[in-house]
Simulated assay, not measured.
Amino acid sequence: MRNHRRATSADVAQEAGVSRATVSYVLNDTPNQKIPEQTRERVLAAAQRLAYSPSTAARALRRGRSDVVLGVMATTPIGVVLGYMLNSLTETLSAEGLTFVLHLHGQGAQPISEVHQALSSAGVVVIGDLPAEDLEDLHRSSTGIVRMAGTEEGRHSASPVDMLPVRATLDTMGRWAGAEQAEFLVKAGHSVLAFANYDDPAVQLTHLARLREAGVHDVCAKYGLPTPLHGVVGSDLEASTAVVRAWADAGVTAVCAYNDEAALAVLSAANDGGLKVPDDLAVIGMDDIPSARSARPPLTTVALDTATLATHVTALLLAGMGTGPCPEVEDYSFTRIIVRASA
């Protein structure tokens, strides 16, 4: 019967006729070790013949950490844009030899610190809202931590050197994104704005919505415009229509929506209330989901460049882990306005 036992470094050493230490030096590409090229090739060939792969557990034990990056977010449906973001993070981290593992943290779940310790994770990426006690638990560790949409302050990014290698913070999906919407509408000539939140808790991150609305307020204050009105729209068309009609009666000519779902609800409510978009009411969404293109009228929105964002998150994480330089703190361009017919 054929032996299906996994090959070990000892097997490779015996096959190549060298010591286990030499095998370790070659396979780990250990610096400052003068291994003859012929020996190196013999070890690599032996490892290939035996289909040898190093034990990730043993490697983590030697290094004090694994090559796993733990992604943590509250339990929530993963929509189109978040899916793109997770795919981009997986790709950029993989290019650095790291494996991205996502943990959805719900009520009664295992403490995040225990998940982190079990994986011996090299770093942590926190996405969205988490309870303060869980964040404090993570911050007590020495791992590299990047928080996305983590604070009320800042515009595009914050990676203060004195916070590294422990943690860094990005506001990339927060306050500045709402400001992008409002700047576009103000430059188009609108002076009375409203912010539309969405009534479905399954797709809304409360902290993120608050940051986006704050960005709209910032722009209105910057230009000396009235404080934006606030309203909630969503699944109840009659209630949404009442909100939109009240805005129109108050002189609102443009709406910044928390996301594209909220913007689509505003479009439906405006139509139901006898308002023409964009003549009577301009509407701008956020995320550029596929249905935004087929809306009537097609939805103007803010699209997130997930590839650029993931690249920056990875750079911050590597700096936090002590394996890369801290990226420059500057205004990264993570978004672009997709202009269609609604605004």
Rank of each mutant, 00 (worst) to 15 (best):
T143G: 13
V125H: 01
L211S: 11
A46P: 04
A250F: 03
V243K: 05
N87S: 14
T253V: 08
N271I: 10
G17Q: 03
E15T: 03
T143I: 11
M73H: 07
A122T: 01
M173Q: 08
D129H: 06
L316S: 09
C326Y: 05
C326I: 15
Q204H: 02
F100K: 01
T30S: 10
Q107G: 13
R65D: 04
R167P: 00
A343F: 04
R336E: 15
A209L: 05
R62M: 12
V277I: 10
M73S: 04
G174D: 04
G251N: 04
D199W: 05
R296Y: 15
V23I: 08
S53F: 14
T314L: 07
N32H: 14
A263K: 08
A109V: 03
S294G: 09
V68Y: 04
V329H: 05
D171I: 15
V216Q: 03
R59K: 13
Q181M: 13
D199I: 06
V124R: 07
D137Y: 03
G123S: 10
A315C: 02
T335I: 12
V192H: 12
T99Y: 12
L61Q: 08
A74G: 15
P165F: 05
A303D: 03
V329G: 07
A263C: 06
S191N: 14
I127A: 01
A262K: 02
D249L: 07
L170A: 01
C256L: 05
S142R: 15
A122M: 08
R167I: 13
D331F: 12
I35L: 10
R40C: 07
V339C: 05
D280C: 01
L27E: 02
N271S: 15
Q181I: 07
T99C: 06
